[in-house]
Design a protein around this nucleic acid. Structure first.
Length: 422
RNA sequence: GCGAGCAUAGCUCAGCUGGUGAGAGCGCCUGACUGUGGAUCAGGAGGUCGCGGGUUCGAUCCCCGCUGCUCGCCCCA
């Protein structure tokens, strides 16, 4: 049997899987709520290719990051192009922003995207090699922290609307090109004498990404005595962070300052944030994002401020309430008896569908009993029964599957009945 | 890339220190019920016990290897 590739999976209609985290209607629901949020907040959809030139990610995300150095699906095309399945979508969106000169037509560009990303990681709860992200990017001339607060407010609206609770917002500032070298240096100096006491991972991080040492759970006790990164920010970064926090306070959005929060992608500057959930297991990040003011220049574009986030659709789906109903189930099942009724049902069902009614019928001649069983299994709300008797009398039977009540209707009355429902 | 656990029917699992016949619940199909579902009852279909090797008179059970899944580390959404 040919199966899905390791650590990938099918997202299925609910009738084919008990796994709530893999049911397609739950994905649809998160997408629908997110799209409504984007509509209200003025975001426009962008769809970029799922593969790009490898160089885009090497330069945008950073050659030394885990993503680029070991997790990308890359290949050389027949014409020797180096191509990569996108591992994230901020760099592609910036690429598009530059390619289509969006800066020329608007000072502030607000984009959203929904789609699959690919990373060659080991699978785990809430982590797959093909996973889905919904994200936004705010691009333009302004780096006003009010932009950041508005984005986070929108995130909270989405979380509320989806009834996802038990979450926590963590915020931090990772500085800018002006102050980061300095606090990296300070960190290096303060950590040097401690290195022998720190775990193996931290010794490695000391060389590769020193900020990550702060994120280590094992060595939390020892690193707690270091100068907090927030004390080392430059004037401008410090002011920016304070303003950002005051806007959150103003909006009544609760958060926790987490000086250990460090994002793993190179392009982040200043504000970094994450929303975690207690219910997710080891991979607790529901979403993450931050500011990336230099990214456009890095990719050959004009100086541009940027802020955005991406949410893990797979993880959102896991966090949704368990009892979410699937609204895409058919409402009506047509049970027919005999050839004449079959021909009639064929044309009637077309009329109903053109009116927007979700209705289905079976194509085998079967007993009314087995048709009813089928309708029951489909969980339709109503069943229309039509046989020779009904055709002769010009009256159809409409049965409510919940109450068991039946009424007689002419075809016109039926069409009007469902029309009124819409 | 590293570590641990698991692998028996479509699903969830049982199978008592290796010993005649491979099981349960749910689901599925049929009938009791010639044109009325859910409940009940009676039948039925469905399994190379993940794959390969070894130990043994005998392996679903013990050992080794492989594969897959799951969870954790790293890292991220």
């Amino acid at each position: 049997m040919i199966k899905t590739v390791k650590y990938t999976r099918d997202i299925l209609p609910e009738e084919f899987t008990n796994d709530l985290s893999a049911q397609s209607h739950r994905f649809q629901h998160v997408e629908a709520v997110a799209r409504e949020a984007f509509r209200r907040y003025g975001y426009r959809e962008i769809r970029t290719p799922i593969f790009e030139h490898t160089e885009l990610f090497a330069r945008g995300v950073g050659q030394e990051t885990d993503i680029v150095s070991k997790e990308m699906y890359s290949w050389t095309d027949v014409n020797n192009d180096r191509l990569t399945l996108r591992p994230e979508n901020t760099a592609p969106v910036i690429r598009s922003y530059i390619e289509h000169k969006m800066w020329a037509s608007s000072d502030l560009v607000k984009l959203f995207y929904i789609g699959p990303m690919f990373r060659r990681e080991r699978g785990q709860k809430g982590r797959f090699r093909q996973f889905y992200q919904i994200g936004v990017e705010v691009l333009g001339k302004s780096d006003n922290p009010a932009i950041e607060a508005e984005v986070i407010e929108m995130i909270y609206w989405i979380l509320d609307e989806l009834k996802i609770s038990d979450t926590e917002l963590l915020v931090n500032s990772v500085g800018c090109p002006a102050c980061r070298p300095q606090f990296n240096e300070t960190l290096r100096r303060e950590l040097a004498p401690l290195l022998r006491e720190l775990c193996a991972d931290c010794n490695r991080r000391y060389e590769t990404n020193i900020l990550r040492v702060l994120d280590c759970k094992q060595d939390a006790e020892r690193t707690a005595q270091l100068t907090p990164i927030l004390d080392l920010l430059c004037r401008e970064c410090n002011l920016h962070f304070l303003q950002f926090r005051s806007y959150l306070d103003h909006k009544g959005i609760p958060y926790r300052v987490e000086p250990r929060l460090v994002r793993g992608l190179d392009y982040y500057t200043r504000t970094a944030f994450e929303v975690t959930s207690r219910t997710l297991g080891a991979q607790s990040a529901l979403l993450g994002g931050g500011r990336y003011d230099g990214l456009s220049e890095t990719l050959g574009g004009p100086p541009t401020k940027g802020f955005g986030f991406a949410l893990g659709l797979d993880r959102f789906v896991m966090s949704l309430p368990h009892d979410l109903a699937d609204p895409s189930r058919p409402e009506l099942y047509i049970a027919y008896l005999g050839e004449r009724a079959f021909a009639y049902a064929m044309t009637l069902i077309s009329k109903l569908r053109r009116q927007g009614i979700a209705c289905v019928m079976d194509f085998e001649q079967r007993s009314l009993r087995s048709a009813m069983k089928l309708a029951d299994k489909l969980k339709v709300a109503k069943v229309l029964i039509v046989g020779d008797n009904e055709l002769d009398q010009g009256q159809l039977i409409l049965r409510d599957m919940r109450s068991g009540e039946q009424q007689l209707l002419t075809e016109d009355e039926l069409l009007r009945f469902f029309h009124g429902q819409k």
